[in-house]
């Protein structure tokens, strides 16, 4: 019980933190939140299903550009575009993942790298004359919520972290359901999963589509937070960061992934003098972790079932 109070206390302090942090640090927390939701959405694919997907930034990009284009050209309010960005990213994910869904391991990895690179090159090349080339799109408006314009870092803090909290709530339930378990069956053993009646191609595809839907919605939040987006925010290396957050935090573990976001996005802010060596430390951490603790810092806890109630 003590542990539970402690967790609530930490959450409370965290939600009040913008009151005593300066704008810079609130913005750092906002970035952590954005990365956390992205990594959680990747977690369905990579952590729960065990698919080596390193192109998640592509779905994030599709969502962000959907919002940017529709908002700047047709002035559709940002909040309306949240589901729309998610759906566009989900459709995109469906179309690209469908032909490659049967690929395994390393092959899937390299193809997903290909997808994120193709998307980035398409954006740079100003595809369909909509994406603004390498300069990107600017002048994206802020979200309006009940007459309040979400503009300051503190506003975004609550906007992002409440979105994150709702996502975590839903993801947690999903993990403890038929769907969540089926993804784990696939991760553990594809042949056995198929042999117990799981339509593995369908479930893998749903994992992709669901992950992309969430990444697309985060794309909307990101676009309205930055008000300007360009292809360099959606490179392969972004995908690598989400990938590392999931793997180092703990594949399949919601708490682990959030912790991973704090460590990978927040920690470097504390050591800004060493910014140059930051990636070097990341790389070393990846090797060392894989040798000594491959399951990540906080691996997923076992699911709990109410067996006694039935007996």
């Amino acid at each position: 019980m003590n542990r539970k109070y402690l967790i609530w206390a930490i959450c409370l302090i965290f939600f009040l933190s913008p009151l005593f942090l300066n704008a810079y640090w609130v913005d750092v927390l906002n970035n952590i939140g954005i990365y956390a939701i992205l990594a959680l959405s990747l977690n369905f694919i990579l952590g729960d299903t065990g698919l080596f997907h390193m192109g998640h930034a592509a779905f994030f990009a599709v969502g962000a550009y959907t919002t940017a284009i529709l908002n700047t050209m047709y002035h559709i309010p940002i909040l309306f575009l949240i589901p729309f960005s998610g759906i566009t990213a989900a459709i995109f994910a469906y179309l690209v993942a469908r032909p490659i869904i049967h690929l395994r391991g390393d092959y899937l990895l390299i193809v997903t790298i290909g997808i994120v690179e193709i998307v980035r090159i398409a954006l740079v090349n100003n595809i369909f004359g909509l994406t603004g080339g390498s300069n990107g799109i600017f002048g994206i408006s802020r979200p309006h919520l009940f007459g309040l314009i979400i503009r300051r870092p503190t506003h975004f803090f609550y906007y992002i972290w409440i979105f994150l909290a709702v996502s975590v709530f839903l993801f947690h339930r999903l993990r403890n359901s038929r769907f969540g378990r089926a993804l784990n069956y696939i991760k553990e053993d594809e042949v056995a999963a198929e042999g117990t009646g799981v339509d593995i191609a369908k479930y893998k595809l749903i994992a992709f589509v669901l992950g992309a839907f969430w990444a697309g919605m985060v794309g909307n939040i990101y676009a309205s937070k930055m008000t300007i987006i360009s292809p360099e925010s959606f490179t392969f290396w972004e995908s690598v960061i989400y990938f590392c957050i999931v793997i180092l935090g703990g594949s399949g573990s919601i708490t682990g992934v959030i912790l991973g976001s704090f460590l990978l996005i927040g920690l470097p802010e504390l050591f800004r003098e060493f910014a140059q060596a930051r990636m070097l430390v990341f790389g070393l951490a990846m090797i060392i972790m894989m040798i000594f603790r491959p399951q990540g810092i906080l691996p997923p806890p076992p699911r709990k079932y109410n067996v006694d109630q039935i007996n």
Binding site: L174, S177, F179, R181, N184, E188, D189, G197
Partner: peptide, 30 residues
């Protein structure tokens, strides 16, 4: 070919998967 990292109970439950209906929406909104 068991699901090694999953519990004994979950392994047994997995057989029943094909007789169940719940998808993502039912999983989220229960």
């Amino acid at each position: 070919r068991l699901f090694k990292e999953l519990s004994v109970l979950e392994n047994a439950m997995s057989g029943y998967h094909c007789r169940m209906k719940a998808g993502i929406f039912a999983g989220m909104f229960k």
